[in-house]
């Protein structure tokens, strides 16, 4: 098992803030909008350095999405920022008509996704957003795993012409990917080559997958671990190639098993090379209050759960 280390834990939302700030300095077409969560989204640096290119929408997310769509007409590249719940479900029709169907170059950037929002509870813990966004024709869906990757993704999506949903989170997580990485939309990242089971993980579950791989290695199980930061378009080739070798797969995500990464992988396999699959995801449930670690354990979204599902899926081969 390849060794991964990190100097410190940082929140992925800070990676977004850093990436946005860099875009502010390098691309004068980039503008940013926020719905009264500038601090939570780490957008202060961009706002302070580019006050004329920052738009405070207030607690009015529907208007914010419309403003962003309008700003593209005239050549701007708008980045909207609010919590994932308010970035998707609350404004689904606005995104559908004014952004996706209209083909507008809007970057919908969503923090506090999933259970790791923690104590605020289920009203704010959206576990359906990947599904909502991936169903929209033309929408690119990205869920990054650490600070460096989130920063790189933020910068990369400015160069992509078309709507993007970029999902990240609140808790501090190991920052293990390289600082100077090149972020390629739609390209899987191979973290560890293995032969017994494929683990395909996204977002905060990527580090858990690495830890799971280490535990499995101690037991003599060789896990191939793939970091899927882009859920749509999915790197089907990488997944099919891996599963052709290992014969089974575990998918891991901080999202409902209905509509998430796991279903995209299952669809890919069923259409090309059916293989046993197990899901590490929430099982069609809402979340609740608690610390991020408590929640991830209670809902089975951690390395222990990945290890258990890996053994289970291998037995089904």
């Amino acid at each position: 098992m390849k060794k991964y280390t990190y100097e410190k834990k940082i929140d992925t939302r800070s990676g977004f803030g850093a990436g946005l700030a860099e875009l502010g300095r390098t691309n004068d077409k980039v503008v940013a909008l926020c719905a009264d969560l500038t601090g939570s989204l780490k957008m202060d640096e961009f706002k302070n350095e580019n006050p004329e290119r920052f738009f405070q929408a207030g607690i009015a997310e529907a208007n914010m999405i419309g403003l962003a769509a309008g700003l593209t007409i005239g050549g701007k590249i708008p980045f909207t920022g609010t919590f994932a719940n308010f970035s998707t479900g609350r404004v689904y029709d606005q995104i559908r008509q004014s952004v996706a169907y209209s083909g507008k170059n809007v970057k919908i950037c969503a923090s506090h996704a999933g259970l790791t929002l923690g104590e605020d509870g289920a009203t704010h813990q959206i576990l359906e957003d990947i599904g909502l966004m991936k169903m929209l024709p033309g929408m690119t869906v990205i869920n990054t795993c650490d600070y460096n990757q989130t920063k790189a993704a933020t910068i990369a999506i400015a160069e992509h012409d078309g709507p993007v949903y970029l999902r990240f989170g609140r808790p501090a997580v190991p920052n293990f990917t390289s600082e100077d990485q090149k972020f390629e939309i739609g390209k899987a990242v191979m973290l560890n080559e293995g032969t017994d089971v494929t683990i395909v993980a996204t977002g905060h579950l990527v580090w858990e997958a690495i830890e799971a791989g280490e535990k499995l290695a101690e037991e003599g199980i060789s896990a191939e671990i793939i970091n899927i930061h882009t859920i749509k378009p999915l790197d089907e080739e990488a997944i099919l190639k891996s599963v052709a070798k290992t014969g089974c797969v575990v998918t891991a995500e901080e999202h409902n098993y209905l509509g998430g990464l796991g279903e995209s992988v299952a669809r890919t396999l069923s259409m090309n090379n059916p293989a046993p699959q197990e899901f590490v995801a929430t099982m069609d449930t809402f979340g609740e209050s608690g610390t991020p670690a408590q929640l991830m354990e209670k809902y089975g979204l951690n390395s222990a759960s990945i290890v258990e599902k890996a053994k289970k899926v291998m037995a089904r081969k």
Binding site: N63, G66, L71
Partner: peptide, 30 residues
């Protein structure tokens, strides 16, 4: 809709209530 590339149209509309926000965004861009 813009989807079929009809000249003159800059945004899809039909689901009501969205055009004011889009128009304001375009005004900010100007």
């Amino acid at each position: 809709t813009t989807h079929e590339g009809l000249p003159g149209v800059r945004i899809a509309s039909g689901s009501l209530g969205q055009g004011m926000s889009v128009a304001l965004g375009a005004a900010l861009a100007k």
